[in-house]
Design a protein around this nucleic acid. Structure first.
Lengths: 147, 147
DNA sequence: CGTTATTCCTACTAAACAAGTAGGAATATA
DNA sequence: TATATTCCTACTTGTTTAGTAGGAATAACG
């Protein structure tokens, strides 16, 4: 199984919520969790990596919350997944050739390297602005947001 | 981490070895293991999924071994990884919408579906014949095969 | 017919990772 | 000082990964 974990999946949804709130001041994790029907306690874990990747800013204390660190159009899905899931390559040998003494001549490694490129390229194609636009033009939107 | 496991990685190397032996009769797992410096005991586990995907044939008993079930040019990396790693989609909701009640309107799910397409397409581009050709034209080849 | 070489099947294990929950400290506002 | 919020660390439970191990089934060969 070659799967994105809930970190990447929930984190993307969190970031889409922040994008939709962009320019309207800090957003509470509590509210994001409610809108996305996720646990605040779990979302908390996604914050440190997103902060160290400089994708979000935080404000502590009452009237605190989170904001995007850049405009939604400046943040790609690649940035988000990379921050939350780590390297996008399907094998460690791609980014760290020294972990395998075959790296110098391994043909399968070449494939994993190419696969990383197409994964990265696909994820880099989408910005948060694109996702927000998709979200808003979704016909199910009104209904889906009801809860 | 979105990683291919050793099943997919070792299994691909196993299949490349079978491809290089194509037309020369059955090959022993013992010999594949030696050439690729892998454990026979572990490679054994990769056989059942490869067989049920009809990618290899086996012959039991003395003078037994394994052969590709089709020509190397007819087997893609997608076939192999799919057989050994399961679905290529980054999220279960892509192939089984019913696992999440958001599937009907979820915009991130659309992204995971698109990502699956590019992963599948990239892996489908390469056949075992391509890998063998790469292998044989590798300058390190003579040296690397020495052990 | 018996020996040997091989695949095949099932079970077991140890370590790492995933997906959370929980307690409480630090900080800012009012 | 009370309250709302982020922040930090630890813990838990279940699943997956990466193997190892024992031995049964099968086929060839002398």
């Amino acid at each position: 199984m070659i799967r994105i974990s809930t970190k990447g999946k929930y984190g993307t949804r969190l970031m889409v919520q922040l994008a939709m709130n962009y320019g309207k001041g800090p957003m509470l994790l509590k509210d994001i969790a409610k809108k996305e029907n996720l646990s605040v306690r779990y979302l908390e874990h996604l914050i440190p990596p997103l902060k160290s990747a400089r994708l979000i800013h935080s404000l502590r204390g009452a009237h605190g919350g989170y904001t995007l660190a850049k405009a939604p159009a400046e943040i790609t899905l690649k940035d988000i997944i990379r921050a939350l899931e780590g390297p996008l390559s399907p094998s460690e040998c791609v980014e760290s050739p020294e972990v395998c003494d075959r790296s110098g001549f391994c043909i399968t490694r070449d494939i994993w390297a190419e696969l990383e490129k197409t994964i990265s390229a696909t994820l880099a194609m989408y910005t948060l602005a694109d996702l927000v636009q998709k979200y808003l033009s979704n016909t199910y939107h009104g209904e889906a947001r009801s809860q």
